[in-house]
Nucleic acid binder design. Sequence first.
DNA 1: CCAGACGTTGTT
DNA 2: GTCTGG
DNA 3: CCAGACGTTGTT
DNA 4: GTCTGG
Length: 540
Amino acid sequence: MCGRTAQGLAPAQIRQQLDKTLPSKPSDSWIGEEKYRTSYNVAPTRYQPVVRADSKTNNYVVHMMKWGLIPRHIKAMPDYNSVLKSINARDDSLFMGPTGKAMFSHSKNHKRCILLAEGFYEWRRRGKERTPFYTKRRDGGLMLMAAIYDVAQIQGAEEPMYTYATITTNASPQLDWLHDRMPVLIPNHDHEKICMWLDPNLSWNSTLEAMLKPCDEFMEVEETDDSTPGGKSIKKVYALETYQVDEKVNSVRNDSPDFVKPWISSSNKKTLNRFFISKGDSGSSPAAPTSLKADFKPEDHSSTEQVILKNDNTGSIIPKREEAEEIKKEAVDRTQQQVPVSADDAQRDAGFQEQESKSPKREQEDDDDGELRKVLELSRQEDADYEPSATPLETTPSVLSSPRRVSGGSACLRVDSEGSVDLLEKRRKELQQEDEEMKKEHPDETSKSSETEEQEKKEQEELEKAIAASLNGAEGASESIYHSQQSVGSTTPKKDAPPSPTMTPMKRKPMGSSAAASPKKGKSSQDSKITSFFQQANST
DNA sequence: CCAGACGTTGTT
DNA sequence: GTCTGG
DNA sequence: CCAGACGTTGTT
DNA sequence: GTCTGG
């Protein structure tokens, strides 16, 4: 996960954002600034700006580092695969549990840093199909991705090599439709946490450990209440928004500001259309976020809902009927010509084009908008009784509360008490047993056909959620958390925290005692590669 | 003491 | 480098 | 992370 | 399939 990021800000803009974000003003020095290139398609092995503490100047510095952690004791250039495998560090690898890991110990104690990204890409997988989605902060602020770095003296290289790895954790309930992992984010306005994370003299402790959880940040937005004309209220929405983007982002050779803008795929158009034809709705439509209470003004960075829904400060994010046509049209136009929609965007786009002027032109969108126009035409007719769908996602909470989702769980991995692994193991066995019993009692439900059916249904729900996210930013996702109040990943540092019933499926076994119980897979070839990774160092 | 491991993701 | 296992 | 390449010998 | 390149 999290193998691609975006950072389209100019250095001056990054500095400006940083001033707002860091507890103290960072030093003006930006190590390796000449390596910086704005890019909306940042892949592993590329240099990116991270913030770290500089113990010499006792200040924060921005430092261009290479994505893919190479530990300090590596002396020879590691092979390609090894580097690739170190672009992320799992949060549970950092815990000092019964099976503490050696590899990251130096970094986690003394070399924590923050990657300065604007957002990250994630590919949603459905079978062999991969669809890129982009996730960014709703307020357009910097996305502070928790990371660790290290300095390696590679034989033959003149300069010491600064490399980093972002830390991953379980996906939040708002994002787990997309993927089961996500980067650990540090809340932009929590100076204390930022300060602690960057403190090189602060060794690993429970407070730091508690930061390693899925993003559960919400931000307040003002909404106008249609049922009470003129009335305004404060609503909390998830701090991140996610939407589908252009598949051109797949290839790292491509780069464009368009990659971080919403993109409606033709396969989604049909489903999209259903939202607009949604019928049988009351007049109580959810309102739009009109102004953000956070420090970042919406006009600082293009905000998706403004872009797509042409938010006009009068309130409703759900378009009035006549507006709906224009919105849909605009969506078409965007997929077709991808016009910059705000002055800020235009400015940024211009800057980007200037920077990338010599890069080959990407081919014009070959979209079959004719088909979409037909669909829209159709919708216009069927649309006589168009009413905005209050919550297109009303059907989706079942996804979150589905029993299947409950099986497994890894949250208690972050608990470092003795016996936590046993607890986990126990819980896991319980769940497995439940699964077995389910199969016995309802063999039909577990039969392949109905399973496939269920899968398809789930996928459809997810698709709708994805599209809703595409249209409404995090609006839809935030809706779902109201229904499942428990925040999945917000594990307390408490030692005996029981597994949460809403935990996401466990994809990985705990290491150590329990892992020893199951026979290891035959991956000797890989082992030898791993070994070579670490031995290259010591051999010289 | 020395030897050996040390990573992630995606598959199903 | 640093931790575990023998 | 995804896309794209993936070979040798002998000749000038 | 597997490896490298970006």
